[in-house]
């Protein structure tokens, strides 16, 4: 008599059973986002494009001398940041917003968090088209190094998923984390050199930026898209290290506390 213990996580088996659910969850997030809006998916292009235009008008005279092709510089940083902030925020709410169903039917709970990060990643992928269009419009250099952007993108995904799992766990127990995290995200935006050159930061504060994984990932992303160079080793190693650590921490905490979620949602 073989009894299947459903609490023993037979990860692969379980994942296979629910991978259709994962695709349905991602599909839902994207479909609902664009449903009943006249412009539909165009919003994904318009939103970064419009904000790029505004910020370019405002800041290009200020920083234009130091930054060549300001729109591409800005957009390459902004898209990375937007994915992180959007993805981690929806991941944070993924457990709470699916509370009704979590209380009724057993589904591996990380599916909801993973699904929300994945759907943000798909939206991010769509908005990358804007970057290409702007690069063509501004006659930017296309180099072979653009292909290497895959590496910071994978790191970014891992980092966001790890942070999302951590945040989802914490926010189940502490509802006010959402507001605290909103403040943190604003600070992160200003601290990631998205619309200004890093050179304007005094040398003795520069290390703060180099410790910020999102900033480091943005520089890697810019190396491939904007500067067209190979990644320097140090930031690459740092970004890999932090992404792996955050992902491991996220998985660990999520798994450790997931059985208690039901008592708090």
């Amino acid at each position: 008599m073989i009894l299947v213990d459903k609490f023993q996580h037979r990860f692969i088996l379980n994942f296979n059973k629910y991978k259709y659910l994962l695709s349905e969850l991602v599909k839902r997030d994207i479909k609902i986002k664009y449903r009943r809006s006249v412009l539909g998916i165009l919003w994904s292009f318009l939103q970064p494009l419009l904000s790029m235009i505004v910020l370019t008008i405002v800041f290009s005279t200020l920083f234009g001398g130091r930054i060549e092709n300001y729109p591409v510089y800005l957009l390459s940083g902004r898209l990375v940041y937007e994915f992180y902030s959007g993805g981690s925020k929806t991941a944070m709410n993924s457990i709470k917003s699916n509370a009704a169903i979590i209380k009724k039917v057993y589904v591996p709970k990380y599916m909801y968090t993973l699904g929300s990060v994945l759907s943000s990643f798909v939206t991010f992928g769509i908005s990358l088209i804007v970057l290409f269009v702007v690069m063509i419009a501004t006659q930017a250099n296309f180099t072979i190094y653009i292909a290497l952007a895959v590496i910071p993108l994978i790191l970014l995904f891992m980092f966001t998923l790890g942070a999302g799992l951590l945040l989802a766990t914490v926010s189940v127990f502490f509802r006010d984390m959402e507001h605290l995290y909103g403040i943190f995200l604003t600070l992160l935006m200003y601290g990631s050199a998205i619309f200004y050159p890093i050179e304007i930061i005094p040398d003795n504060y520069r290390f703060l930026f180099e410790l910020n994984p999102i900033f480091v990932i943005i520089t890697l992303f810019r190396d491939s898209f904007y500067y067209g160079t190979m990644f320097p080793l140090k930031p690459l190693l740092y970004a890999t290290f932090t992404s792996v650590i955050i992902l491991i921490m996220g998985i660990y905490f999520f798994y450790h506390y997931q059985d208690k979620f039901i008592l708090y949602i």
Binding site: I2, L3, V4, D5, K6, F7, R28, K31, I32, R35, A100, I101, K103, K104, V105, Y106
Partner: peptide, 22 residues
């Protein structure tokens, strides 16, 4: 411990997983 075998269908609250915009 709880062990179960086979496909389990809970008819607890019907349509709990519905998305109202869908």
């Amino acid at each position: 411990t709880v062990k179960t075998k086979g496909r389990l269908v809970p008819l607890l609250e019907l349509g709990a997983g519905f998305d109202s915009n869908y």
